[in-house]
């Protein structure tokens, strides 16, 4: 129609540019920022890198995976032990756990670290650990507190997660005695324990890193088999994520995240979890145990200490409100928030 404006020069130019972009690469390859004939790029890549024969490949893979022997002393053998992680200042849960595993006659009790954060009154944890003769390994929380770090090294990227991690770290840092912090600095990073004839490796995050997250849905079998091969262990026990799982491996070994006793496992129930391990006819019997404790008492103390409502809510209703960004797709899908 005559009164309509003709297409502007600008939009015609944009269209031509778009067409040029879409067809720019016909017969060409992008080599860095240049366009070159496809054949030139292909012959350069064909010549690049090294190509080992199959025997050399096998040897290279073996060398790459080879590992220094671990000089850690092996404790035990025991018939039954309790292993737990992530106390997060939750002294009522710790007291309940010690009662329960003592009545079940545990030969030894192990804690995989992260004593502080989240809950109230950090100093109430230490006497309980001593009374229960709990053997503790260092988590990222203990490492950071002992070294006077500015943050907990939890490994978050989301600013909201970091904000709450910071609130809980600062509270714990300010309320933990110097003596307790020094003691945290003396804790071992790993332990080895015999349950029956099964040798267990106990770590905080993973055998490789104190703050590596091992979630059920993102920790595959071949990776776990590789770690146990390298460590020459029959079972791996870790914590750090706050979510428990047990994976019996095809090799007959076990990988276990023992969960935490400091806060619920993001499943809408106010209970926490620990791990019970027993010798069972030459094998390892693994039980992930639910533990009820006086969570209302804990919530009251947290309120009096003016800890964030978000934390108290989790203790009462069992759903996480923070540290959600780190959850893999599957664990996040099950989450309420």
């Amino acid at each position: 129609m005559s009164h309509r404006m003709p297409k502007s020069e600008r939009s015609l130019r944009q269209r031509a540019e778009k067409r040029a972009r879409l067809t720019a690469h016909a017969g060409l390859a992008t080599w860095g920022e240049r366009l070159v004939p496809l054949g030139q790029f292909r012959s350069a890549t064909a010549a690049a890198g090294r190509t080992l024969d199959s025997a050399a490949q096998e040897a290279t893979r073996r060398d790459f995976l080879s590992h220094q022997p671990d000089p850690t002393t092996v404790e035990g053998p025991y018939s039954r032990i309790a292993v737990f992680g992530g106390v997060y200042n939750n002294h009522p849960a710790l007291a309940a756990l010690l009662d329960e595993v003592t009545s079940r006659s545990a030969d030894a009790i192990y804690c995989l670290g992260d004593l502080g954060g989240f809950g109230p009154h950090p100093n109430k944890v230490r006497p309980l650990l001593e009374e229960g003769a709990v053997r503790v390994i260092q988590g990222n929380y203990e490492e950071s507190l002992a070294a006077n770090h500015q943050d907990c090294n939890c490994g978050y990227t989301d600013p909201r997660d970091n904000h709450f991690a910071d609130v809980s770290y600062r509270y714990t840092a300010e309320n933990t005695s110097l003596g307790f912090k020094r003691w945290m600095g003396t804790l071992p990073r790993r332990r080895r324990v015999l349950v029956g004839n099964r040798e267990l490796l106990l770590v905080h995050g993973s055998p490789r890193r104190i703050n590596e997250f091992l979630f059920a849905s993102t920790t595959p079998v071949p990776f776990l088999e590789m770690l146990l091969d390298q460590e020459k262990a029959d079972a791996l026990c870790c914590t750090h994520t706050g979510l428990e799982w047990h994976r019996p491996l095809p090799s007959g070994r076990d990988a276990i995240n023992v969960g935490v006793i400091g806060r619920p496992a993001n499943d809408g129930r106010p209970v926490v979890r620990y791990c019970w391990l027993e010798e069972a006819r030459g094998k390892l019997a693994v039980e992930l145990v639910e533990l009820a404790y006086d969570h209302r008492l804990l919530a009251q103390e947290m309120r009096r200490e003016e800890l964030p409502n978000e934390f108290i809510e989790t203790i009462l209703d069992g759903w996480w409100t923070t540290c959600l960004e780190i959850l893999p797709a599957r664990e996040r899908a099950r989450s309420r928030h």
Partner: peptide
């Protein structure tokens, strides 16, 4: 092309 390291992971 110089970012290529080999034909298999072992390489």
């Amino acid at each position: 092309p110089s970012g290529k390291m080999g034909a298999t992971l072992a390489d």
